[in-house]
Design a protein around this nucleic acid. Structure first.
Lengths: 208, 208
DNA sequence: TCATGTGAAGACATTCACAGCA
DNA sequence: TGCTGTGAATGTCTTCACATGA
C-alpha cells in the first residue's frame, strides 16, 4: 500500500467520526458530495481519500456507510487494540482522558502518570495513575507505543526522552516546546497558546 | 503585503515563541541555520518565512534577535490588544486559561462563560465567568473578536452560531464537531480525539 | 442521467543553488 | 569565507473533467 500523507489521515479520521455520528437504520448509503457538504472538503478530495484506502463505492448507490466505517476502522486502527500512556494529570491530561473515554474501542489510555502525591495511586476515569518514576517500567510491561505529554513545558523534554527509551513510537505533545528525540518516533505538537495566537491573527486580518 | 499562508503563520508563531525563550544578554544575533536546528525546519524555509514579513537580517551577523521578535510581534499581534472569549470552563477551558495566562501581552481571555451555577460569577485565573446566557451581551460590549469553544460536542454548534451573531471573527474549536457558520469567520479545529487517533496511526505504521 | 474512479492539470509549498555582499 | 535573499526547480496536494457503468 502506498504511503498516505498526514493530511489524508486526518481527513479519513474526520470521515470516520462523522459517519459514526450519523449511523441510523434509515440511511444505508452516502454520496461523496454529501460528505463534501458535511465536511467542507470537495467531493473529488473525498473520493480520492476513500480510494487511497482501497475502498470502493458504487456509482449508483454511493458508499455503503457500514462497510466504509469498517474499512476506515481497519485502516486507521489496525487489528489490535492500542494502549496509550498519559503523562500529566492537570487540566489538559484530564481533558484528553475525558474525551477519549469509551469513544474509540481500539484506543484506551491504560496508564497515566503524575508526580503529585494527591493523584498517584488514584483512578481517574477508570485509568490508574502511577508515579512518574515508574514510567519506563509500566510502559515496557504493558507494551505501550503511544504517549501523550501533558506536563509543563520544562518537564516535557525529559518525559519525551524517557518515553523514547521505553519504546514509545508516537507522541502527542501539548507542551509548548519542540521535543528533541530520535528520528523514527512520530511527534504531533498541539501547543494551545499557538492555537489561540493563530486564530487571533486570522480574526484580526479577516476583518480588515 | 502578500497573503501569508496558514502554514507560514504557524511557523512564524513558533519562531517567536522560541526566540522569547532564549532571550539573554549573551546572544544578540542568530543565523537561519541555528533556527533550523532548533525547530527542525530547513534554513531556506526560515529565511523565506522571515522575508515574508518584510524583516531583513545581515549576511554577516544573521538576524538581530530583539528586532526580529519585535517584527514578528507586530506581524502576528498587530497594534492593539485582542480580548478573547472562552466558552466552557471544563478541563479544556481551564487548560487554555492556564496556558495563556500572562504569556502573551497582546492576548487576554477577558471573559469566560459556563452554565454551571458553581462556576458562574466566580473568577478563574483572573478571568470572570459569566452565565452563558449573557454571551452576546458581553462579547458585543467588550468588542471581542476571538472566541474559544470548549463545551461538549452537542452544544458547540449553538455556541458557534451565537458567537458569529455577536461579531466574533475567529473561533478556536475544541469540540469534536464541524461547525457550520457563515464564511468570513475563521475556524480552527483542535479535536483531541482526532489528535490521539492520528498519533496512534503513525505509531503503529512507523514500527512496521 | 448521475456518481464513481482517475489521468492530467493546476495550485501551492518547499528546497536548491547561487549572486551579492561584508 | 559564510551568510542572506531569492529565482528557479522540484515536490506535494487538490481540483478539474471525463470515461465508464448501471
Amino acid at each position: 500500500m502506498k504511503t498516505i500523507s498526514e493530511k489524508t489521515i486526518e481527513r479519513l479520521i474526520i470521515y470516520r467520526g462523522l459517519l459514526l455520528n450519523l449511523v441510523s437504520d434509515k440511511v444505508k448509503n452516502i454520496f461523496s458530495h454529501q460528505l463534501a457538504t458535511m465536511t467542507g472538503f470537495t467531493s473529488a478530495q473525498i473520493r480520492r481519500d476513500i480510494m487511497s484506502i482501497g475502498y470502493s463505492g458504487s456509482p449508483v448507490r454511493g458508499y455503503d456507510i457500514q462497510n466504509l466505517i469498517k474499512s476506515l476502522g481497519e485502516f486507521i486502527d489496525g487489528e489490535e487494540k492500542q494502549p496509550v500512556a498519559l503523562v500529566g494529570l492537570g487540566h489538559v491530561g484530564r481533558a484528553v482522558l475525558d474525551y477519549l473515554k469509551g469513544r474509540r474501542p481500539k484506543l484506551e489510555i491504560t496508564a497515566s502518570f503524575d508526580d503529585d502525591p494527591a493523584k498517584v495511586d488514584r483512578v481517574f476515569q477508570g485509568c490508574m495513575c502511577y508515579h512518574v518514576n515508574d514510567l519506563e517500567k509500566i510502559i515496557e510491561k504493558e507494551n505501550i507505543k503511544v504517549g501523550i505529554i501533558a506536563v509543563p513545558a520544562d518537564e516535557a523534554q525529559s518525559v519525551a526522552e524517557r518515553m523514547a527509551n521505553a519504546g514509545i513510537k508516537g507522541i502527542l505533545n501539548y507542551a509548548p516546546v519542540k521535543l528533541n528525540i530520535p528520528s523514527g518516533i512520530y511527534v504531533e505538537n498541539r501547543d494551545m497558546t499557538l492555537a489561540v495566537e493563530k486564530v487571533a491573527y486570522f480574526a484580526r486580518t479577516a476583518s480588515e
